[in-house]
Design a protein around this nucleic acid. Structure first.
Length: 441
RNA sequence: CGGGGCGUAGCGCAGCCUGGUAGCGCAUCUGCUUUGGGAGCAGAGGGUCGCAAGUUCGAAUCUUGCCGCCCCGACCA
Protein backbone atom coordinates (compact mmCIF):
# COMPACT_ATOMS: atom_id res chain seq x y z
CA UNK A 1 0.00 0.00 0.00
CA UNK A 2 1.24 3.44 -0.91
CA UNK A 3 0.70 5.86 1.94
CA UNK A 4 -0.21 8.58 -0.56
CA UNK A 5 -3.25 6.52 -1.53
CA UNK A 6 -4.10 5.16 1.88
CA UNK A 7 -6.41 6.75 4.44
CA UNK A 8 -4.42 7.34 7.59
CA UNK A 9 -5.69 10.33 9.55
CA UNK A 10 -3.07 10.55 12.28
CA UNK A 11 -3.36 13.18 15.00
CA UNK A 12 -0.42 15.07 16.38
CA UNK A 13 -2.36 16.15 19.42
CA UNK A 14 -4.13 13.90 21.85
CA UNK A 15 -7.90 14.21 22.08
CA UNK A 16 -8.92 15.12 25.62
CA UNK A 17 -11.50 12.39 25.99
CA UNK A 18 -8.91 9.64 25.88
CA UNK A 19 -7.53 8.84 29.31
CA UNK A 20 -5.64 5.61 28.85
CA UNK A 21 -2.73 4.98 26.54
CA UNK A 22 -4.36 2.45 24.22
CA UNK A 23 -7.34 4.73 23.62
CA UNK A 24 -5.08 7.72 22.98
CA UNK A 25 -2.85 5.82 20.60
CA UNK A 26 -5.74 4.29 18.67
CA UNK A 27 -7.19 7.75 18.11
CA UNK A 28 -3.85 9.32 17.28
CA UNK A 29 -2.85 6.52 14.91
CA UNK A 30 -6.09 6.92 13.01
CA UNK A 31 -7.37 3.46 13.90
CA UNK A 32 -10.79 4.32 15.26
CA UNK A 33 -13.25 7.17 15.40
CA UNK A 34 -15.87 7.50 18.08
CA UNK A 35 -19.37 7.87 16.65
CA UNK A 36 -21.24 7.74 19.96
CA UNK A 37 -20.45 6.78 23.53
CA UNK A 38 -18.87 3.35 23.34
CA UNK A 39 -19.46 3.03 19.60
CA UNK A 40 -16.58 3.28 17.16
CA UNK A 41 -15.97 3.31 13.45
CA UNK A 42 -12.94 1.23 12.51
CA UNK A 43 -10.74 3.24 10.21
CA UNK A 44 -8.55 1.37 7.70
CA UNK A 45 -5.53 0.95 9.94
CA UNK A 46 -7.55 -0.26 12.91
CA UNK A 47 -9.67 -2.47 10.71
CA UNK A 48 -6.60 -4.19 9.33
CA UNK A 49 -5.43 -5.02 12.86
CA UNK A 50 -8.89 -6.17 13.86
CA UNK A 51 -8.89 -8.60 10.96
CA UNK A 52 -5.42 -9.86 11.88
CA UNK A 53 -6.45 -10.50 15.47
CA UNK A 54 -9.65 -12.14 14.30
CA UNK A 55 -7.70 -14.46 12.02
CA UNK A 56 -5.34 -15.57 14.78
CA UNK A 57 -8.30 -16.38 17.00
CA UNK A 58 -10.02 -18.19 14.13
CA UNK A 59 -7.00 -20.34 13.36
CA UNK A 60 -6.60 -21.40 16.96
CA UNK A 61 -10.28 -22.20 17.32
CA UNK A 62 -10.23 -24.26 14.14
CA UNK A 63 -7.12 -26.08 15.30
CA UNK A 64 -8.93 -27.07 18.48
CA UNK A 65 -11.77 -28.56 16.46
CA UNK A 66 -14.35 -25.80 16.73
CA UNK A 67 -16.57 -25.12 13.70
CA UNK A 68 -17.29 -21.58 12.58
CA UNK A 69 -20.72 -20.31 11.66
CA UNK A 70 -22.35 -16.89 11.81
CA UNK A 71 -25.42 -15.90 13.75
CA UNK A 72 -27.29 -12.62 13.29
CA UNK A 73 -26.96 -9.56 15.49
CA UNK A 74 -30.72 -9.24 15.98
CA UNK A 75 -32.60 -11.90 17.89
CA UNK A 76 -36.24 -12.47 18.72
CA UNK A 77 -37.28 -11.66 22.25
CA UNK A 78 -39.35 -14.84 22.33
CA UNK A 79 -36.18 -16.92 22.09
CA UNK A 80 -34.85 -15.24 25.21
CA UNK A 81 -38.14 -15.75 26.99
CA UNK A 82 -37.55 -19.49 26.68
CA UNK A 83 -34.51 -19.28 28.90
CA UNK A 84 -36.00 -16.64 31.13
CA UNK A 85 -33.27 -14.15 30.36
CA UNK A 86 -35.39 -11.63 28.48
CA UNK A 87 -36.76 -10.28 31.72
CA UNK A 88 -33.65 -11.06 33.74
CA UNK A 89 -31.22 -9.12 31.62
CA UNK A 90 -32.08 -5.56 32.50
CA UNK A 91 -31.32 -2.27 30.75
CA UNK A 92 -27.97 -3.46 29.43
CA UNK A 93 -29.87 -5.23 26.69
CA UNK A 94 -30.81 -3.08 23.73
CA UNK A 95 -34.43 -3.81 22.88
CA UNK A 96 -35.89 -2.98 19.50
CA UNK A 97 -39.27 -3.29 17.80
CA UNK A 98 -39.75 -3.89 14.11
CA UNK A 99 -42.58 -2.45 11.96
CA UNK A 100 -44.87 -5.27 13.05
CA UNK A 101 -44.25 -4.45 16.70
CA UNK A 102 -42.30 -7.68 17.05
CA UNK A 103 -39.91 -7.47 19.96
CA UNK A 104 -36.27 -7.91 19.02
CA UNK A 105 -32.99 -7.39 20.76
CA UNK A 106 -29.46 -6.64 19.63
CA UNK A 107 -27.63 -9.68 20.89
CA UNK A 108 -25.29 -9.27 23.86
CA UNK A 109 -24.47 -13.01 23.57
CA UNK A 110 -25.82 -16.07 21.78
CA UNK A 111 -26.47 -18.97 24.15
CA UNK A 112 -30.18 -19.10 23.36
CA UNK A 113 -29.73 -18.91 19.62
CA UNK A 114 -27.02 -21.56 19.42
CA UNK A 115 -29.13 -23.81 21.63
CA UNK A 116 -32.06 -23.29 19.29
CA UNK A 117 -29.90 -24.21 16.29
CA UNK A 118 -28.49 -27.24 18.04
CA UNK A 119 -31.82 -28.64 19.13
CA UNK A 120 -33.26 -28.24 15.64
CA UNK A 121 -30.74 -30.63 14.12
CA UNK A 122 -28.85 -32.71 16.66
CA UNK A 123 -30.66 -35.64 18.21
CA UNK A 124 -28.02 -38.29 18.89
CA UNK A 125 -24.94 -38.65 21.08
CA UNK A 126 -23.22 -39.87 17.92
CA UNK A 127 -23.10 -36.27 16.67
CA UNK A 128 -21.10 -35.23 19.72
CA UNK A 129 -18.84 -33.70 20.73
CA UNK A 130 -19.61 -30.50 18.89
CA UNK A 131 -18.20 -27.00 19.29
CA UNK A 132 -19.73 -24.19 17.25
CA UNK A 133 -18.41 -20.65 17.29
CA UNK A 134 -18.87 -17.36 15.57
CA UNK A 135 -17.42 -13.89 15.61
CA UNK A 136 -19.99 -11.19 15.58
CA UNK A 137 -20.71 -7.69 16.78
CA UNK A 138 -22.45 -7.57 20.12
CA UNK A 139 -24.10 -4.77 21.99
CA UNK A 140 -24.36 -4.19 25.70
CA UNK A 141 -25.78 -0.88 26.74
CA UNK A 142 -23.19 -0.16 29.38
CA UNK A 143 -24.09 2.51 31.87
CA UNK A 144 -20.67 3.96 31.47
CA UNK A 145 -18.60 3.03 28.43
CA UNK A 146 -14.94 4.01 28.75
CA UNK A 147 -11.37 3.17 27.85
CA UNK A 148 -12.11 3.33 24.13
CA UNK A 149 -12.42 -0.05 22.54
CA UNK A 150 -11.70 -1.82 25.82
CA UNK A 151 -15.11 -1.18 27.17
CA UNK A 152 -17.36 -0.10 24.38
CA UNK A 153 -21.05 -0.73 24.07
CA UNK A 154 -20.67 -2.25 20.64
CA UNK A 155 -17.87 -4.80 20.56
CA UNK A 156 -16.62 -7.65 18.41
CA UNK A 157 -16.53 -10.98 20.13
CA UNK A 158 -15.69 -14.58 19.40
CA UNK A 159 -18.06 -16.87 21.24
CA UNK A 160 -17.90 -20.64 21.08
CA UNK A 161 -20.39 -23.13 22.46
CA UNK A 162 -19.61 -26.76 23.24
CA UNK A 163 -22.08 -29.64 23.33
CA UNK A 164 -21.37 -32.94 25.03
CA UNK A 165 -23.25 -35.94 26.31
CA UNK A 166 -21.95 -35.80 29.87
CA UNK A 167 -19.85 -33.76 32.22
CA UNK A 168 -16.68 -35.73 31.46
CA UNK A 169 -17.08 -34.86 27.81
CA UNK A 170 -17.79 -31.26 28.68
CA UNK A 171 -14.60 -31.15 30.71
CA UNK A 172 -12.62 -32.38 27.71
CA UNK A 173 -14.25 -29.68 25.59
CA UNK A 174 -13.40 -27.13 28.25
CA UNK A 175 -9.76 -28.22 28.31
CA UNK A 176 -9.48 -27.93 24.54
CA UNK A 177 -10.66 -24.34 24.74
CA UNK A 178 -8.39 -23.66 27.69
CA UNK A 179 -5.34 -24.71 25.67
CA UNK A 180 -6.57 -23.02 22.49
CA UNK A 181 -6.89 -19.76 24.43
CA UNK A 182 -3.35 -20.00 25.77
CA UNK A 183 -2.07 -20.53 22.24
CA UNK A 184 -4.14 -17.72 20.74
CA UNK A 185 -3.08 -15.14 23.31
CA UNK A 186 0.56 -16.16 23.00
CA UNK A 187 0.40 -15.66 19.23
CA UNK A 188 -1.01 -12.19 19.89
CA UNK A 189 2.08 -11.36 21.90
CA UNK A 190 0.20 -11.38 25.18
CA UNK A 191 0.99 -13.01 28.48
CA UNK A 192 -2.48 -14.07 29.52
CA UNK A 193 -2.94 -15.77 32.87
CA UNK A 194 -5.94 -18.05 33.44
CA UNK A 195 -7.59 -17.21 36.72
CA UNK A 196 -10.34 -19.02 38.49
CA UNK A 197 -13.59 -17.17 38.02
CA UNK A 198 -16.95 -17.18 39.67
CA UNK A 199 -18.99 -20.10 38.38
CA UNK A 200 -22.27 -18.68 39.60
CA UNK A 201 -25.09 -21.09 40.39
CA UNK A 202 -23.44 -24.04 38.63
CA UNK A 203 -20.49 -24.24 40.98
CA UNK A 204 -17.45 -26.41 40.36
CA UNK A 205 -14.05 -25.44 39.05
CA UNK A 206 -14.89 -24.98 35.38
CA UNK A 207 -14.72 -21.26 34.80
CA UNK A 208 -11.62 -19.23 34.07
CA UNK A 209 -10.97 -15.70 33.06
CA UNK A 210 -7.89 -15.03 30.95
CA UNK A 211 -6.21 -11.92 32.25
CA UNK A 212 -3.56 -9.75 30.63
CA UNK A 213 -1.56 -7.84 33.19
CA UNK A 214 -1.51 -4.09 32.55
CA UNK A 215 -1.37 -1.02 34.73
CA UNK A 216 -4.63 0.24 33.29
CA UNK A 217 -6.49 -3.00 33.90
CA UNK A 218 -9.95 -2.63 35.28
CA UNK A 219 -9.66 -5.24 38.00
CA UNK A 220 -7.17 -6.16 40.68
CA UNK A 221 -5.71 -9.63 40.31
CA UNK A 222 -3.48 -11.87 42.43
CA UNK A 223 -1.40 -14.77 41.22
CA UNK A 224 1.76 -16.81 41.47
CA UNK A 225 4.42 -15.00 39.47
CA UNK A 226 5.49 -18.17 37.64
CA UNK A 227 2.17 -18.23 35.79
CA UNK A 228 3.00 -15.05 33.92
CA UNK A 229 6.04 -16.55 32.24
CA UNK A 230 4.72 -20.08 31.80
CA UNK A 231 3.95 -19.64 28.11
CA UNK A 232 1.61 -21.64 25.92
CA UNK A 233 1.73 -25.35 25.03
CA UNK A 234 1.81 -24.54 21.32
CA UNK A 235 -0.14 -26.12 18.48
CA UNK A 236 1.43 -29.57 18.67
CA UNK A 237 -0.72 -31.03 21.40
CA UNK A 238 -2.92 -34.08 21.07
CA UNK A 239 -6.29 -32.39 20.78
CA UNK A 240 -8.14 -35.69 21.04
CA UNK A 241 -6.02 -36.89 23.90
CA UNK A 242 -5.85 -36.01 27.58
CA UNK A 243 -5.15 -32.30 28.01
CA UNK A 244 -5.78 -32.39 31.73
CA UNK A 245 -2.09 -32.38 32.76
CA UNK A 246 -1.47 -29.25 30.68
CA UNK A 247 -4.45 -27.55 32.28
CA UNK A 248 -3.54 -28.72 35.78
CA UNK A 249 -0.09 -27.26 35.44
CA UNK A 250 -1.67 -23.83 35.03
CA UNK A 251 -4.52 -24.17 37.45
CA UNK A 252 -2.63 -25.64 40.39
CA UNK A 253 -0.85 -22.37 41.11
CA UNK A 254 -2.79 -19.62 42.80
CA UNK A 255 -4.48 -17.12 40.50
CA UNK A 256 -7.61 -15.16 41.28
CA UNK A 257 -9.39 -11.97 40.41
CA UNK A 258 -10.44 -9.64 43.18
CA UNK A 259 -13.90 -11.14 43.64
CA UNK A 260 -12.45 -14.65 44.00
CA UNK A 261 -9.38 -13.63 46.00
CA UNK A 262 -8.64 -15.38 49.27
CA UNK A 263 -5.79 -13.48 50.96
CA UNK A 264 -5.11 -16.18 53.53
CA UNK A 265 -4.82 -18.87 50.87
CA UNK A 266 -2.70 -16.56 48.72
CA UNK A 267 -0.17 -16.12 51.49
CA UNK A 268 -0.26 -19.78 52.45
CA UNK A 269 0.22 -21.15 48.92
CA UNK A 270 2.50 -18.59 47.29
CA UNK A 271 6.02 -17.78 48.56
CA UNK A 272 6.37 -14.10 49.37
CA UNK A 273 8.81 -13.39 46.55
CA UNK A 274 6.45 -14.97 44.00
CA UNK A 275 3.31 -13.15 45.05
CA UNK A 276 2.07 -10.94 42.26
CA UNK A 277 -0.58 -8.32 42.83
CA UNK A 278 -1.41 -6.34 39.72
CA UNK A 279 -4.08 -4.84 37.54
CA UNK A 280 -5.49 -6.96 34.78
CA UNK A 281 -7.60 -6.82 31.62
CA UNK A 282 -10.00 -9.66 31.01
CA UNK A 283 -9.58 -10.81 27.40
CA UNK A 284 -11.29 -14.17 27.57
CA UNK A 285 -13.71 -16.12 29.69
CA UNK A 286 -14.53 -19.81 29.49
CA UNK A 287 -17.42 -21.38 31.30
CA UNK A 288 -19.15 -24.70 31.79
CA UNK A 289 -22.82 -24.31 32.55
CA UNK A 290 -24.22 -27.79 31.96
CA UNK A 291 -27.96 -27.79 31.36
CA UNK A 292 -28.65 -24.15 32.11
CA UNK A 293 -30.02 -23.53 28.62
CA UNK A 294 -30.48 -27.03 27.25
CA UNK A 295 -32.92 -28.03 29.99
CA UNK A 296 -35.39 -25.15 29.75
CA UNK A 297 -35.04 -25.00 25.97
CA UNK A 298 -35.35 -28.77 25.61
CA UNK A 299 -32.13 -29.33 23.71
CA UNK A 300 -31.84 -33.07 24.33
CA UNK A 301 -29.82 -35.85 22.78
CA UNK A 302 -30.43 -39.55 22.90
CA UNK A 303 -27.63 -41.42 24.64
CA UNK A 304 -26.32 -44.95 23.95
CA UNK A 305 -28.84 -46.22 26.47
CA UNK A 306 -31.75 -44.86 24.45
CA UNK A 307 -32.53 -42.22 27.05
CA UNK A 308 -32.93 -38.54 26.17
CA UNK A 309 -31.04 -36.06 28.29
CA UNK A 310 -30.28 -32.34 28.09
CA UNK A 311 -27.00 -31.72 26.33
CA UNK A 312 -24.09 -30.49 28.47
CA UNK A 313 -22.96 -27.06 27.34
CA UNK A 314 -20.15 -24.60 27.85
CA UNK A 315 -19.40 -21.21 26.37
CA UNK A 316 -16.10 -19.59 25.55
CA UNK A 317 -15.71 -15.91 24.82
CA UNK A 318 -12.86 -13.79 23.54
CA UNK A 319 -13.22 -10.02 23.29
CA UNK A 320 -11.66 -9.57 19.86
CA UNK A 321 -12.06 -5.80 19.61
CA UNK A 322 -11.01 -5.40 23.23
CA UNK A 323 -7.84 -7.34 22.44
CA UNK A 324 -6.54 -4.44 20.35
CA UNK A 325 -6.64 -2.24 23.39
CA UNK A 326 -5.07 -4.93 25.54
CA UNK A 327 -2.25 -5.51 23.04
CA UNK A 328 -1.45 -1.80 22.93
CA UNK A 329 -1.56 -1.50 26.70
CA UNK A 330 0.98 -4.32 26.82
CA UNK A 331 3.10 -3.12 23.91
CA UNK A 332 3.82 0.57 23.39
CA UNK A 333 6.31 3.28 24.23
CA UNK A 334 6.39 7.06 24.35
CA UNK A 335 6.42 7.31 20.55
CA UNK A 336 3.49 5.03 19.86
CA UNK A 337 2.29 1.50 19.34
CA UNK A 338 4.63 -1.47 18.98
CA UNK A 339 2.66 -4.17 17.18
CA UNK A 340 3.62 -7.79 17.71
CA UNK A 341 4.65 -9.27 14.35
CA UNK A 342 1.56 -11.41 13.98
CA UNK A 343 -1.04 -8.65 14.15
CA UNK A 344 0.67 -5.58 12.69
CA UNK A 345 -1.52 -3.80 10.13
CA UNK A 346 1.39 -3.84 7.68
CA UNK A 347 4.48 -5.99 7.84
CA UNK A 348 6.81 -3.04 7.62
CA UNK A 349 7.14 0.54 6.48
CA UNK A 350 9.28 1.63 3.55
CA UNK A 351 10.23 5.24 4.13
CA UNK A 352 11.21 7.32 1.12
CA UNK A 353 13.07 10.27 2.57
CA UNK A 354 13.22 12.18 -0.71
CA UNK A 355 10.42 11.45 -3.16
CA UNK A 356 11.29 12.89 -6.56
CA UNK A 357 14.95 11.97 -6.31
CA UNK A 358 15.33 9.41 -9.12
CA UNK A 359 17.87 7.25 -7.33
CA UNK A 360 15.87 7.16 -4.11
CA UNK A 361 12.59 6.57 -5.92
CA UNK A 362 14.11 3.69 -7.87
CA UNK A 363 15.46 2.05 -4.75
CA UNK A 364 12.15 2.47 -2.95
CA UNK A 365 10.11 1.11 -5.82
CA UNK A 366 12.36 -1.90 -6.03
CA UNK A 367 12.03 -2.54 -2.32
CA UNK A 368 8.29 -2.03 -2.43
CA UNK A 369 7.84 -4.45 -5.32
CA UNK A 370 10.07 -7.13 -3.82
CA UNK A 371 8.51 -6.91 -0.37
CA UNK A 372 4.99 -6.92 -1.80
CA UNK A 373 5.80 -9.96 -3.92
CA UNK A 374 7.11 -11.70 -0.82
CA UNK A 375 3.76 -11.16 0.87
CA UNK A 376 5.15 -8.86 3.56
CA UNK A 377 2.45 -6.23 3.06
CA UNK A 378 4.68 -3.15 3.09
CA UNK A 379 3.32 0.33 3.68
CA UNK A 380 5.32 2.58 1.38
CA UNK A 381 5.56 6.17 2.58
CA UNK A 382 5.89 7.95 -0.76
CA UNK A 383 4.52 11.25 0.56
CA UNK A 384 6.26 14.60 0.53
CA UNK A 385 6.29 15.02 4.28
CA UNK A 386 9.48 15.96 6.01
CA UNK A 387 11.69 13.19 7.32
CA UNK A 388 10.89 13.94 10.95
CA UNK A 389 7.17 13.71 10.36
CA UNK A 390 7.58 10.42 8.52
CA UNK A 391 9.58 8.89 11.33
CA UNK A 392 7.10 10.09 13.90
CA UNK A 393 4.18 8.60 11.96
CA UNK A 394 5.96 5.28 11.48
CA UNK A 395 6.77 5.05 15.17
CA UNK A 396 3.20 6.02 16.06
CA UNK A 397 1.53 3.34 13.97
CA UNK A 398 4.05 0.80 15.23
CA UNK A 399 4.92 -1.36 12.23
CA UNK A 400 7.52 -3.94 13.29
CA UNK A 401 10.19 -2.79 10.82
CA UNK A 402 11.11 0.42 9.07
CA UNK A 403 13.18 0.35 5.90
CA UNK A 404 14.54 3.86 5.54
CA UNK A 405 15.83 4.90 2.13
CA UNK A 406 17.32 8.36 1.69
CA UNK A 407 19.60 10.23 -0.72
CA UNK A 408 22.79 9.96 1.32
CA UNK A 409 22.47 6.25 1.88
CA UNK A 410 21.43 5.57 -1.69
CA UNK A 411 24.54 7.36 -2.95
CA UNK A 412 26.61 5.06 -0.77
CA UNK A 413 24.58 2.00 -1.74
CA UNK A 414 23.08 1.76 1.73
CA UNK A 415 19.70 1.72 3.43
CA UNK A 416 18.74 1.66 7.08
CA UNK A 417 16.69 -1.04 8.75
CA UNK A 418 15.08 -0.21 12.05
CA UNK A 419 13.38 -2.57 14.44
CA UNK A 420 10.48 -0.71 16.03
CA UNK A 421 10.43 -2.69 19.26
CA UNK A 422 14.06 -2.11 20.19
CA UNK A 423 14.85 1.01 18.21
CA UNK A 424 17.95 -0.73 16.86
CA UNK A 425 19.08 0.53 13.48
CA UNK A 426 21.37 -1.18 11.06
CA UNK A 427 22.91 0.18 7.91
CA UNK A 428 23.30 -2.31 5.10
CA UNK A 429 22.87 -2.67 1.36
CA UNK A 430 19.39 -2.68 -0.10
CA UNK A 431 19.85 -6.24 -1.33
CA UNK A 432 20.96 -7.45 2.08
CA UNK A 433 18.00 -5.71 3.72
CA UNK A 434 15.54 -7.21 1.26
CA UNK A 435 16.90 -10.72 1.59
CA UNK A 436 16.84 -10.41 5.34
CA UNK A 437 13.23 -9.23 5.35
CA UNK A 438 11.95 -11.65 2.76
CA UNK A 439 13.60 -14.52 4.60
CA UNK A 440 11.09 -13.86 7.37
CA UNK A 441 8.11 -14.26 5.07
C1' C B 1 -27.64 4.98 38.33
C1' G B 2 -25.41 8.75 42.14
C1' G B 3 -21.56 12.84 42.13
C1' G B 4 -18.57 16.31 39.19
C1' G B 5 -17.27 18.68 34.57
C1' C B 6 -17.32 20.07 29.45
C1' G B 7 -19.78 21.41 24.50
C1' U B 8 -16.55 28.00 20.56
C1' A B 9 -12.97 26.09 12.90
C1' G B 10 -10.63 19.20 11.51
C1' C B 11 -7.62 18.86 16.61
C1' G B 12 -6.11 21.42 21.28
C1' C B 13 -7.83 25.74 23.68
C1' A B 14 -8.86 31.28 25.13
C1' G B 15 -13.00 34.60 25.28
C1' C B 16 -18.18 34.01 29.31
C1' C B 17 -17.48 36.31 35.67
C1' U B 18 -18.21 42.38 34.13
C1' G B 19 -23.56 41.37 27.12
C1' G B 20 -21.50 45.38 21.95
C1' U B 21 -21.67 40.33 16.82
C1' A B 22 -15.28 35.76 17.71
C1' G B 23 -9.63 34.83 18.64
C1' C B 24 -4.78 31.81 19.39
C1' G B 25 -1.68 27.35 18.31
C1' C B 26 -1.62 23.05 15.25
C1' A B 27 -3.81 21.20 10.77
C1' U B 28 -5.59 22.71 5.52
C1' C B 29 -4.63 25.75 0.72
C1' U B 30 -0.96 29.14 -2.30
C1' G B 31 4.08 31.00 -2.97
C1' C B 32 9.26 31.14 -1.68
C1' U B 33 13.05 29.01 1.24
C1' U B 34 14.26 24.50 3.81
C1' U B 35 15.11 18.98 3.67
C1' G B 36 17.60 12.21 8.25
C1' G B 37 13.33 12.93 13.98
C1' G B 38 6.47 16.31 13.90
C1' A B 39 10.60 23.23 9.51
C1' G B 40 10.71 28.97 8.47
C1' C B 41 8.60 33.32 6.25
C1' A B 42 4.49 35.61 3.68
C1' G B 43 -0.50 35.21 2.37
C1' A B 44 -5.48 32.68 2.21
C1' G B 45 -9.79 29.82 3.33
C1' G B 46 -12.68 27.68 7.15
C1' G B 47 -17.12 28.72 12.83
C1' U B 48 -25.88 29.28 12.38
C1' C B 49 -20.22 29.67 19.47
C1' G B 50 -24.47 21.77 20.89
C1' C B 51 -30.11 22.70 20.18
C1' A B 52 -34.52 25.52 21.57
C1' A B 53 -37.06 29.11 24.10
C1' G B 54 -36.56 33.56 27.19
C1' U B 55 -34.42 38.45 29.09
C1' U B 56 -32.33 42.68 26.30
C1' C B 57 -31.80 47.94 21.62
C1' G B 58 -28.12 44.00 21.29
C1' A B 59 -26.52 37.17 23.74
C1' A B 60 -20.72 32.78 22.68
C1' U B 61 -21.45 35.69 27.28
C1' C B 62 -27.33 36.19 31.52
C1' U B 63 -31.97 32.62 32.59
C1' U B 64 -34.71 28.03 31.70
C1' G B 65 -35.34 23.45 29.25
C1' C B 66 -33.43 19.66 26.17
C1' C B 67 -29.42 16.90 23.71
C1' G B 68 -24.45 15.09 23.50
C1' C B 69 -19.76 13.83 25.54
C1' C B 70 -15.99 13.15 29.44
C1' C B 71 -14.25 12.04 34.51
C1' C B 72 -14.91 9.64 39.76
C1' G B 73 -17.90 5.87 42.02
C1' A B 74 -21.35 1.45 41.82
C1' C B 75 -21.77 -2.25 37.51
C1' C B 76 -19.80 -5.13 33.39
C1' A B 77 -16.67 -9.24 27.81
Amino acid sequence: MRLSRFFLPVLKETPTEAQIVSHRLMLRAGMIRQEAAGIYAWLPLGFRVLKKVEQVVREEMDRAGAIELLMPTLQLADLWRESGRYDAYGPEMLRIKDRHERELLYGPTNEEMITEIFRAYVKSYKSLPLNLYHMQWKFRDEQRPRFGVMRGREFYMKDAYSFDLDEAGARRAYNRMFIAYLNAFARLGLKAVPMRADTGPIGGDLSHEFIVLAETGESQVFCHGDLVEMGAPGPDVDWDGDLQPLVDRRTSLYAATEEMHDPARFEREVPADRRLSARGIEVGHIFYFGEKYSAPMRAVVTGPDGQDRPVQMGSYGIGVSRLLGAIIEASHDAAGVIWPDGVAPFGLGVVNLKPGDPAVDTACERAYAALSAAGLEPLYDDTFERAGAKFATMDLIGLPWQLVIGPKGTAAGEVELKRRATGQRETLSLEAALSRLTAKA
